[in-house]
Amino acid sequence: MSNLHEIQDRINSVKSTRKITRAMYLIAASKSQKAKAQLASTLPYFLEVASTLSEILAASAFIDTHFLAGREKRGASEKGGLYVVFGGDKGMAGGYNQRVIALMRERVDKASATVLAAGMTGKVRLSREGYRVDPDFFYPIMNPSIYRSRSIAGLVAERYLTGQYKEVGLIYTSVVSPIKQTPVFARLLPLHPEEFAEIGGVRPEAAKYNIIKYEPSAREVFDHLVPHYLNGIIYSALVEAYVSEQLARIYAMDNATKSADDMMASLALRFNRARQAKITQEISEIVGGIPES
């Protein structure tokens, strides 16, 4: 008898868990859609910034700025790196956080690196792993905004210019396809001019014949623009990380919902069997209990 009740309780509890996983699945799906649309609307701005920077580099390749590779502050190359890591805000996203940490192990020297971790779960796990995580760096991943990435970009550029870091790297998860997200490592600083020509689309030979005046000076315009350029990369990485987390959660929650369905089906079967057994038993008791006349 109690067996029937127990099975009924299990069914109810699986049912309510399924409601949660199903809701999380739907929320994650709509959030990732929104973030993707946002990313598309900011793209023209950043392409323009990148193309201006590459134009400056093409026209005056010898500007004296510490942002460029080969022109770093003295002694910076012996220092450790500064790494911005976008982990997950929350768990319940399958192996999302583990994959980010696995890449960290591979690419980052634990002893010398300073880590700026965004996303609460990722941050906690990284400090547990023994990385030097800056406690004052506190940003969520969710609902990425241009303001957040701008303050990250400003902070990173400012820190880099102190000459205490050999490089600034960014680790985030990139969206390969709806079911596949891969963590990637991107170098933010120092900037390499040849990579710029790729992104900005301005070839040195094309810019030679175009005389451009810079105010106040090419270097100042360049230094002013670098944080904007970093902002573009960081923002799109932030959105990608956010979308990846949501996609990982969609996948994890979809699986959870499916297994809840399977469990409910097998529990329903057990419930029906138990009920049938009870009825059969009652009948046989009644039949067996009829006194012979």
Binding site: T52, E55, I56, N210, I211, I212, K213, Y214, E215, P216, E220, V221, H224
Partner: peptide
Amino acid sequence: TSHDGEKGIWPGHLSMVVA
């Protein structure tokens, strides 16, 4: 307005980049 004052721009201006 750049850092050293206002600038008027008409069609056919010299190429420049101004903060």
